Amino acid sequence: MSRMRLHRRLILAGAVAATAALMMTACSSGTALPGDDTPATGGASDGASSASGLLADAPVAGDDLIVDGSTMAAIKERGKLIVAEALDAPLLSQQDPTNPDNVTGFDAELAKALAVYILGKPEVEIVPPASQTREALLQNGTVDVVFNTYTITEERAQQISFAGPYFESGLAVAIKKGTSGITSEKDLDGKTVIVGANTPAVTAVPEIAPKATLVQFDTDPAAVQALLQGRGDAYVQDYTLLASDAASESNLQVVGNPFTKEPYGIGLKHDDAEFKKFINDWLVKIQKSGLWAKIWQETLGTVTVGDAPTPPEIGSVPGS
């Protein structure tokens, strides 16, 4: 599943509309628009571009890894990484309305970290995608990569390639702050559990908590309101949606990590094996160095009780 099917995505009519939206928002980290020779202004231009300074120690690829004629070399020569990424996804990639050049969140910080790895600085230009345009944006060369809660599937992998997975979402548990006795899905048995109608939680919760009582709501806002009103002990929904809810509702808290698997990959142009290996090697580096966990802690982790999850193994799912 993609968060594009949820309420928080920017819906654009196609790749042309996405590019037009970019021309209006001019969202980048100190970069000019495509074809614009005017010196870029705004945005950060050093490794400490994020508010928390997360990228100060981000790795930079050696010159030997930027192979002549490669996608990496083309990006470095251009001087910016062009990314398909949302602008309205709290804790994932959200634009600051008071400073359009500032886009923060888990996906956004990872995209900046990849730019640092290639360029030595977090120069990122964003093209906001719609779910139906992501493959086209890669295929026609509008963007270099997609960081967009892009679920890896074998069907999609026939059109584009995936590096990663870099994160696993899935169903997770949220509670009202102050609720005791629920720290993960293992504590749901015997509890009243709120779920979204016609969502995977309807069948998944009885499997892990057969004595739980389910209460279904048609919309996410209605489910959140019911939880805060005490009409259920917990709410089970997609982790990234719950994190988005918790970012705007201070009394909501996500506990534990996802207990089902929905692997997210970095979208790349099809059959660019060299670029895919380059990004996969980068992912391993930031996982081992702790940068991946720090980025999670400063974004999704701010509304989640518990330690950073273990990153998924690179190439561990069909299509990756």
Rank of each mutant, 00 (worst) to 15 (best):
R3G: 12
M4W: 15
R8K: 12
A13I: 02
A26P: 07
S28F: 07
T31S: 13
G35Q: 08
D37S: 13
T41V: 15
A48V: 10
G53C: 03
G53P: 04
L54I: 07
D57S: 13
A58V: 01
I66D: 03
I66H: 05
K76N: 03
E77D: 10
R78M: 04
G79K: 00
G79F: 00
I82C: 09
I82A: 10
S93K: 01
D101K: 05
A108F: 04
E109P: 08
K112L: 14
L114I: 02
Y117K: 03
P122F: 07
P122R: 04
V124E: 00
I126L: 09
I126E: 04
S131V: 11
Q132G: 12
E135M: 11
N140T: 05
N140Q: 09
V143S: 07
V145T: 09
T149P: 01
A157D: 14
I160C: 10
G164L: 00
P165C: 03
F167I: 11
L171C: 07
V173Q: 08
K176N: 06
S180F: 09
S184V: 01
K191S: 08
T192R: 09
A197G: 13
N198L: 12
I208K: 04
P210T: 07
K211L: 12
L214Q: 07
V215I: 11
D220R: 10
A223N: 10
V224G: 00
A226Y: 01
D233M: 04
V236L: 11
D238R: 08
D238I: 05
D238L: 14
T240S: 14
L241P: 00
A243Q: 12
D245N: 13
N251F: 08
V254G: 01
G256S: 06
F259Y: 15
Y264R: 03
I266K: 06
A273K: 12
K277G: 08
I279N: 11
L283N: 03
K285M: 14
I286S: 00
W292P: 01
W292R: 00
Q297L: 11
E298K: 15
T299C: 08
T304H: 03
D307R: 04
P312T: 08
I314Y: 12
I314K: 11
I314T: 11
V317P: 02
G319Q: 03
G319C: 06
